[in-house]
Amino acid sequence: MEILKPNDLKKKFDKSWVAAYDKVLTLVDKDNVEIIEYHPCMSGSEWLVNQYRNSSELITDAFRDGNKHVYKATVGKKPLNLKASYNAAGIEEVAIHNNEVKVTHSGLAGAGVGAGMCRGLGKGVNYIELHDVGGGSKIGKATVVTPKLQKVVIGIDDTDTKDEGATWTTAHNIGLELKNEGFEYIDHIIVQLYPNNPYKTQNCVSIGLTFAVPEDKKDKLIERIIELLKRDTLSDKTSIAILEGLNIPDELRKYSIKAKTGMVSVDEAEDLAKKLNIDLIEVTGSQGKIGALAALGLYDNPKEAVKIYSRNNDK
């Protein structure tokens, strides 16, 4: 086994057949992990997601969004039964050591090259433990070591007025500003709420921003979002909701669907947030709590988030 940092890896394998991943992030919640990788190719990563899903017992779910692919997995060790074309690559071990996560990838031929050399060049990687060099017809195997991160999702609602503003762009611009400050801004989702809400500005949506942060930077992230919203919001009804970890409680999902299909009160939002231990914070006012909390329940399902359920009842 050879331990190689990204710069060492680049010098050792300066080959035309090695393509660097853009970034690798690993989010942890107890014994569950979410591995987010930005592949060198766009839709080419669909092949890899399919292979990993088929080959790895540790993976509970996998999907692709552009060149970003996500593996949801559990801590443990499960040997792979690699077979060319059918089960060509996968994850055989996930381990957490202090503030690092170690994910062992194995693959045949080109998938083996991706296992260590390509991933190891990505941003966010501390180093790799190279077990076997892939390529040609050989098996490649490497343990990719990344910092242990925590997922924090921020629901945001009510930043505009009837005269000006847009919540989705205000939230995104804040996400970009935080990215420039060093926070890992992963995703932005628009959640369609009840279209017949009399309090709406117009389209009636709320926003969920997803971040990956070291645990000791979580509070600073939240403080900055509140500061930036106070600076940028045009409304006196702005609120945020904060969901930590990888799990979305069933009650929260049901609440989000309810907020898409009919009216919900601020009291109902506050009661559920308290029950689920979700922080619900007034930035300039309380009305935004309803949509901010609703954004959290569907942040991982963009297609469901944008659906309109009450079209037949529109007047």
Rank of each mutant, 00 (worst) to 15 (best):
T169Y: 07
T170M: 00
H172R: 00
N173K: 01
N173D: 11
I174P: 03
I174E: 04
G175R: 00
G175S: 04
G175P: 09
L178T: 12
L178E: 10
L178K: 09
N180H: 14
E181V: 06
G182M: 12
F183P: 01
F183M: 03
E184A: 05
Y185I: 10
I186S: 06
I186Y: 05
D187P: 00
D187I: 01
I189Q: 05
I189P: 03
I190K: 06
I190T: 07
V191K: 12
V191Y: 09
Q192E: 01
L193G: 08
Y194P: 02
Y194L: 07
P195G: 02
P195Q: 02
N196P: 01
N196W: 00
N197R: 14
N197T: 11
Y199F: 11
Y199I: 08
K200D: 11
K200T: 11
K200H: 12
T201M: 15
Q202K: 13
Q202N: 14
Q202F: 14
Q202G: 08
C204N: 15
S206N: 06
S206A: 15
S206Q: 07
L209R: 11
T210F: 03
F211M: 06
A212R: 07
A212N: 09
A212M: 10
A212S: 15
V213M: 08
V213G: 06
V213H: 09
P214Q: 15
P214G: 14
P214W: 08
P214S: 11
E215W: 03
E215L: 04
E215I: 02
E215H: 03
K217L: 12
K217D: 11
K218F: 03
K218I: 15
K218N: 05
L221P: 08
L221W: 02
E223K: 11
E223H: 08
E223F: 07
R224H: 04
I225C: 13
I226F: 02
E227P: 08
E227S: 13
L228F: 03
L228H: 05
L229P: 14
L229F: 14
K230T: 06
R231A: 13
D232W: 01
D232C: 00
T233H: 10
T233Q: 06
T233L: 10
T233I: 09
L234V: 03
L234W: 10
D236Q: 06
T238M: 13
S239M: 04
S239I: 04
L243S: 03
G245A: 11
G245E: 11
L246Q: 12
L246G: 09
L246M: 09
